[in-house]
């Protein structure tokens, strides 16, 4: 299967993520969209690492594993991020009874 399919899929996922982040005001949905973008990147990394090292795979079983390792990194970071981020959102909800980011313009003042 050519790599193009993966690229388009991940591009589509990434764009959905961006549009979601830009347009939605609900913090949780924005959060989900960020996760979506991260996963789009993950998909990309996996696909590239597989396709790019196709030739070497016959000789060396672990060829292209760097890309796969990166994915694990991102997943770990994302997990950490979710735990912190969700905690922040919970705190925010407790304080202002809303998860609408438009209320979060304290920096301006």
């Amino acid at each position: 299967m050519p790599v193009n399919y993966y690229i388009f899929l991940s591009l589509a996922l990434f764009c959905i993520g961006i549009v979601g982040v830009l347009t939605r005001r609900n913090a949780i949905i924005i959060f989900m969209c960020i996760e979506l973008m991260l996963n789009a990147v993950n998909l990309m990394l996996v696909a590239f690492s597989k396709m790019h090292h196709l030739k070497n795979a016959a000789i060396n079983a672990s060829a292209g594993s760097e890309g796969q390792v990166f994915v694990f990194f991102i997943m770990v970071v994302a997990a950490a991020e979710v735990s912190v981020g969700l905690a922040i959102i919970v705190m925010m909800y407790r304080n202002i009874h809303s998860v609408d980011i438009n209320f979060l313009n304290r920096l301006k003042h």
Partner: peptide
């Protein structure tokens, strides 16, 4: 330009 709107910051970033 520092409107405090997270959305506008992200838009600028993108």
């Amino acid at each position: 330009m520092q409107s405090g709107q997270v959305g506008s910051y992200i838009l600028l970033m993108v």
